[in-house]
């Protein structure tokens, strides 16, 4: 109980302080002014749209890579499980700042149409690398989801009823692991809404987190409000997925 109490104090004080700070209005008193900035500030709003666009495409690519691979490993190639596990550690060993250093070198020194297209905008330049950053979390989430369902039985039943492999994946496996898939998608969203290292080093200033850090230098209240909102929103989404996954299992 003592441990839980102390932890609660340590973890809640900064969050409550952030909430209090974000509600302050200039000249004293409290209000929602900082939160409403997102609707009136055009730079922030357009940066949010850029980041959401990146997040959606990143999540789609991540799931397209991870779901078939994780299913394949479980069904056809269990020997590769260890290999895949270590492959998903690699993005942790190569931290974002180092990845950014390598990409920045390419950006500065190599030309040609392929690289020009790649570095044309923050969307084209950042999305492929955010996919790499999201892979470890997504793989673990999806693999845990697959471990909880009778995958082989489901796939064999679907195949015996004449479904092709893609149809089996989309209409049998995917719905069965939907809470794990949603979890992976929300983790990707959280990652994209919090990534500033690669975007800053590659000099893309138009993503949401970079715009927030910029605005934080002059208007700390707005930055506190919007980062708190995105953190709490992500957490609520994950909590909802966690409870949804639980209620589905209880009825018998």
């Amino acid at each position: 109980m003592v441990v839980l109490g102390l932890s609660a104090v340590f973890f809640l004080v900064p969050l409550l302080s952030a909430a209090e700070f974000s509600l302050r209005v200039p000249g004293g008193g409290y209000g929602l002014a900082n939160y409403l900035t997102i609707a009136t500030d055009e730079v922030l709003l357009s940066s949010l749209l850029v980041s959401l666009q990146i997040a959606v495409v990143t999540a789609a690519l991540v799931l397209a890579l991870v779901v078939p691979t994780a299913v394949w490993v479980r069904l056809r190639f269990p020997a590769a499980a260890v290999l895949l596990e270590s492959a998903t550690i690699l993005p942790i060993v190569v931290p974002p700042v180092v990845m950014a250093a390598g990409i920045a070198f390419v950006q500065a020194n190599l030309g040609g149409p392929v690289f020009r297209t790649l570095f044309a905008s923050s969307f084209t330049a950042l999305t492929p690398f955010y996919v790499v950053l999201a892979l470890p979390f997504a793989y673990r989430s999806v693999d845990n989801g697959l471990a909880a369902i009778p995958l082989r039985t489901l796939v064999e039943a679907a195949r015996n009823l004449g479904a092709s492999l893609p149809v089996t994946l989309l209409r049998v496996v995917l719905p069965a692991i939907r809470s794990a898939v949603l979890g992976a998608a929300f983790l990707t969203l959280a990652l994209v809404l919090g990534e500033i290292v690669i975007a800053r080093i590659l000099l893309y200033g138009d993503t949401f987190p970079v715009a927030i850090v910029e605005i934080g230098r002059s208007q700390a209240g707005v930055a506190v409000a919007l980062t708190l909102a995105s953190l709490v929103l992500t957490w609520l989404l994950l909590l909802a997925v966690s409870f949804a996954g639980a209620t589905r299992r209880t009825p018998r």
Binding site: P14, S17, G194, S230
Partner: peptide, 16 residues
């Protein structure tokens, strides 16, 4: 995994 930026601002709000 994703606290980095929000936490920095939360700590400024708490201990700034």
């Amino acid at each position: 995994y994703f606290g980095g930026v929000p936490l920095a601002f939360a700590f400024i709000a708490a201990l700034g």
